[in-house]
Amino acid sequence: MKKPRLWYVIADGGRARFVERDDQGAFRTLSSFVSTELHKSAHELGRDRPARVKESASPARSAIEPRRDLHEAAKEDFIRTVAETLAAELKDQKFDELVLVAPPGVIAELKGSLSKPTAKVVVKELHKDLTKVPDHELTGHLAPKQ
């Protein structure tokens, strides 16, 4: 029987990479993503001042609270893009099993964004931020699959 092909998804709110272990046990990055909005300020992402509303009974104007934080929205969009890419890669049979490695909040968002077939192949979750750890140092952080 063929050994299942295992991918590690190492992500945070603005960076992600897909990593696999080769036959010698070394990790290598297959592809990586960096959000284009990662280092942008709020005014670069959209309106930095909230919209205004006039009161009908007086000349006063009040600010409207934004529906969602622009940085949070950019993070959610990025996580959704990573999940869609994983779904496409699974459809192309690039991997058989998946390990999610991300901070707890990002893992929750990523799991919520995964398609049902992709969610079924998740075998493990690690609540760590390893996005800036180079491939040759991942062995100490990622225990071999049980």
Rank of each mutant, 00 (worst) to 15 (best):
L38Y: 13
A26T: 11
R21F: 03
A74H: 00
T131R: 01
K145N: 14
A88R: 08
K116G: 11
L70K: 03
G140C: 01
T131D: 01
A83Y: 10
S62V: 14
S115T: 08
K111T: 00
A16C: 01
H136L: 12
G105D: 04
K111L: 07
A88P: 01
E37F: 11
D92P: 05
A108T: 00
K3M: 15
K132R: 08
L98D: 02
E137M: 12
H136C: 11
A73K: 14
T139S: 12
F18G: 00
A102Q: 10
G105K: 12
K40S: 03
E84F: 09
K75H: 14
K94I: 02
S115M: 07
K111R: 14
A88H: 14
G112P: 02
P144T: 06
A57D: 13
E20T: 08
L38F: 08
K94Y: 04
H39R: 13
K91S: 14
A73I: 05
A51Q: 10
V9H: 02
S41W: 03
A88I: 06
E44G: 12
S41I: 05
V19A: 00
E109M: 13
I10W: 10
R52M: 13
S115D: 08
E37V: 08
T85G: 07
A16M: 03
P144N: 00
A83C: 04
M1W: 15
S56C: 12
E72N: 15
F95M: 01
E72D: 15
K94Q: 01
K94W: 04
A119M: 01
E109T: 04
L45V: 05
K145T: 11
E84H: 07
L114E: 02
D129K: 08
I64S: 11
A87S: 03
A26V: 04
G13T: 11
V34T: 08
A11M: 06
L70G: 09
K91N: 11
E72A: 15
E97M: 14
H136V: 03
T36H: 05
P103E: 06
S35D: 10
R28P: 07
E84I: 11
R49C: 10
M1H: 15
I107R: 05
F33C: 01
G140T: 05
T139R: 04
A11R: 02
T118L: 02
P104I: 08
V34Y: 14
P117A: 07
Q146S: 12
F18M: 06
E76R: 15
P134C: 09
H43Y: 12
H43T: 04
S41L: 15
K94E: 07
A16D: 13
S58W: 06
L90W: 11
V106G: 11
V122Q: 09
R80A: 13
G25V: 09
G14E: 07
A42S: 13
V82E: 08
E76D: 14
E109C: 10
L45C: 11
P4H: 01
V123D: 04
E55K: 06
F18H: 08
I10E: 01
K128I: 09
V99A: 09
V53S: 06
L110T: 10
E72Q: 15
R28C: 11
G46Q: 06
L100W: 00
I79N: 00
K3W: 01
H43K: 12
S115I: 08
